[in-house]
Write a protein that binds this DNA or RNA. Structure first.
Lengths: 155, 155
DNA sequence: CAAAGATTCTGCGGTAATCGCAGAATTAAC
DNA sequence: GTTAATTCTGCGATTACCGCAGAATCTTTG
């Protein structure tokens, strides 16, 4: 995923079960996956590789930003003129931006940013507001992360 | 992380480098990590285990929701009365909610939800608005995910 | 429906990675 | 400066991973 490669790949029950296992523990062995889904190790390995190649799934380390030197996080609601997608793609290029989504509602884009401190955040906000096509923005500084999970299953 | 365990663990350069390697590829071998950071395999393995145990980092599969049967995603801005944290913790218990953050700004909470379709989303919104302490809410339906990444490094 | 083609699977040998542990080295505490 | 705690290296024993050949299954096509 990451850039969502379209072309919705069809996922059978086995693929979904494999995803769920890796959502629990990204470093589980192919052998363990194979046993859990009732396939040979080689088949399970091929399945995982295919899911990674097709970008349906990625296996990565996710960190708590506050513990690795990023004190300030925020969501920025952005109103645009012209094509929101274009602005979104340009925002996506900013390194402090880790999440950009085009939405329907009183904001055209929602942008999550990860900063080291307040001056850094201020600078990023300035960068966003100076972007061509950005009409206005509203910043929501994060006070506390109550929940964050990645195992929403597959169904 | 996930519930962020406080107690900021001190991260030295080696730990940060290890995190960065795993942000690139969550299934990289301990041997490869060891070689990259200049430690023995056993030491690298102990480091990774410690990072996982201390909940500074987790290694998980992350999927593109649209490809695994969840067509409708949305961010819900919530205004509360009373303690926003309390409401946030209650929202965190809703299974369709994968992300809850307490913020400063015109919303007290931002809540991301993952749904199968529009009726499902409607039901979740109803659930949110009925929660004690929720005064009002505004929903931003996702039209396109422009960017999503997890390798914001460590510094 | 039958044959051809494409996928996906199993089985297996060779290689590489993982695990657990004992002891050395380093770091922190007193 | 001594003790204690942590972290590291080295190394067998075990397990997992990789690549491939051939069988099985699912798809396409005439």
């Amino acid at each position: 995923m990451g850039r969502m490669s379209e072309g919705s790949v069809r996922l059978d029950a086995t693929a979904k079960r494999i995803i769920e296992l890796l959502q629990e523990d990204g470093r589980i062995s192919y052998a363990a996956i194979a046993k859990a889904v009732g396939l040979s190790e080689a088949a399970a390995r091929a399945r995982v590789q295919k899911l990674l190649d097709s970008e349906v799934m990625q296996v990565v380390a996710v960190t708590d930003p506050t513990q690795v030197g990023f004190t300030r996080q925020a969501m920025i609601g952005v109103r645009t003129e012209g094509d929101p997608m274009k602005v979104g793609d340009r925002l996506a290029e900013v390194s402090e931006v880790d999440y950009v989504v085009t939405t329907a509602g009183s904001f055209d884009l929602l942008v999550e940013v990860v900063c080291e401190d307040d001056p850094h955040l201020l600078d990023v906000i300035r960068q966003v507001r100076e972007l061509e096509g950005v009409v206005s923005s509203e910043t929501f500084v994060y006070l506390k992360l109550n929940k964050q999970h990645y195992n929403w299953g597959t169904r």
